[in-house]
Amino acid sequence: MDIAFTVSLPVDTSSVPFVRGLCRMALEHLRVEPAVVDEIVLALTEACANVVQHAGDHTDYEVQVAIDDAVCRIVVVDGGEGLDPDELTSAATADRSPLERGHGLRLMQALVDRLSFRHDPDGRHRVTLEKRLAAPPALRLVDPV
C-alpha cells in the first residue's frame, strides 16, 4: 500500500507537531519499524522547525509526503530564502563556533539516506528528505573454504 498526502500549514510552531503526527500515523499504519519512524519524524520536525524559525514574513508552507514499500520521501516547500549547506559549513568553520548553527542540518543528514535543497524558479525553497524503509541486507560471514 502507498500513502501520499500534501498539507498546507501556517508558519507557526503549532503546525510542527500536527504534521509530525500525520506522518507518524501514516508510517505506523504501514507497519514501518518504530526506529525508522522515529528517525523520519525527527528529520521532518527539524525541517519544519527551520521553516518556522527562518521563513520570515511568509505565512504558509507545504509538506508533501509519499510513502511506498521501499521509501518515504518528504518535501518541505516554503517561500523563505532557504539555505546553502556549503555556506553554512564554511561559516561554522570560519568565524563562528560550530555549536551556533548547523546542528539541524547535520542531524537531518544523519537521520535520512538523502537530503537535498533546491531553489525553484518561482522563489520557493524545497528541502527533500528520503529514507529507505527496508533495512539493508544483513551481512553474512562466510566460512573460508
Rank of each mutant, 00 (worst) to 15 (best):
A4L: 06
A4H: 08
A4I: 00
T6L: 00
T6I: 02
V7H: 02
S8M: 05
L9R: 14
P10M: 01
D12M: 08
V16L: 04
V16G: 03
V16Y: 01
P17A: 10
F18K: 12
R20H: 04
G21I: 13
L22Y: 07
C23E: 09
A26F: 11
E28I: 12
H29C: 02
L30I: 06
R31D: 11
V32F: 00
E33C: 03
V36L: 04
V37L: 01
D38E: 09
D38I: 11
E39H: 06
E39S: 11
V41A: 00
T45S: 14
E46T: 03
E46C: 01
A47E: 00
V51W: 01
Q53D: 13
A55E: 00
G56S: 08
D60T: 13
D60K: 14
Y61V: 12
Q64E: 11
D68P: 02
D69E: 15
A70W: 09
V71A: 07
V76Q: 07
V76F: 09
V77L: 15
D78S: 10
D78T: 07
D78A: 08
G79M: 14
G80D: 10
G80M: 07
D84F: 12
D86W: 05
D86S: 10
L88T: 05
A91Y: 03
A91K: 05
A91L: 12
D95Y: 13
E100C: 06
G102L: 04
H103A: 10
G104C: 08
L105S: 01
L105V: 15
M108Q: 12
Q109D: 12
L111E: 04
V112Q: 01
L115N: 09
S116R: 07
S116K: 03
R118M: 09
H119E: 09
D120K: 07
D120C: 15
D120L: 15
P121G: 04
P121N: 03
D122K: 06
G123I: 11
G123K: 09
G123Y: 01
R124V: 03
R124H: 11
R124C: 06
R124N: 07
H125T: 14
H125G: 04
T128V: 13
L129H: 11
E130G: 15
E130K: 15
E130H: 10
K131N: 09
R132Q: 14
P137I: 09
P137C: 03
P137Q: 04
R140A: 14
R140P: 10
V145G: 04
